[in-house]
């Protein structure tokens, strides 16, 4: 995947950190839904939701990043992404804005205590640094 600087991203927050996903990869952003839990699956897989008749799995970024589970607030969103054949929802604390980056740098080994493999790069904006998610590793984390 070639990362170009003109590309648009959706920026969202988890705790105090800011992350982003390429806008093309995003199917839609919805409010928190009733999640049906599935027994004995990967702990970061929270369950499935009914997205207009389609059954869509939902994962928790907080869990994946080893953060404490925060209770859902009115700002909690599910970012639904299309990745290869799958449609997957990612739970985030809040969605901030659509953004572009003036510069994108390769990720270091660790980004604020989180495995650097989860990121394609670190985007620079006026407001600071944003971790750009690499869906390949985020979704297929073992």
């Amino acid at each position: 995947m070639q990362v170009t600087e003109q590309e648009q991203y959706i920026e969202f927050g988890i705790g105090n950190e800011r992350y982003a996903i390429r806008i093309q990869d995003i199917h839609e952003i919805i409010k928190m839904q009733d999640i049906t839990h599935i027994p004995n699956v990967m702990p970061y897989v929270k369950g499935v939701i009914n997205l207009r008749g389609k059954i869509v799995p939902v994962i928790s970024l907080r869990h994946l990043f080893g953060l404490d589970q925060e209770t859902d607030s009115k700002n909690t969103r599910i970012v639904v992404v299309n990745h290869q054949e799958d449609t997957v929802g990612i739970i985030v604390d809040r969605v901030n804005k659509v953004t572009t980056f003036s510069d994108i740098q390769l990720p270091p080994d660790r980004v604020g205590g989180i495995d650097g493999n989860f990121f394609v790069g670190i985007g620079l904006t006026g407001g600071g640094l944003v971790g750009i998610l690499k869906l390949d590793t985020v979704l297929l984390h073992e």
């Binding site: 009733d34 049906t36 599935i38 027994p39 004995n40 699956v41 897989v45 369950g47 499935v48 939701i49 009914n50 008749g53 059954i55 869509v56 799995p57 054949e85 799958d86 449609t87 997957v88 979704l139």
Partner: peptide, 26 residues
Amino acid sequence: KSLGSYIGKVDCIAGATILGDGKVAL
């Protein structure tokens, strides 16, 4: 309905369906 390839085969679960209230049931 199937749980989809992302979740794959889950022990003791054959699939899912959508109930009258819109919720997913296993």
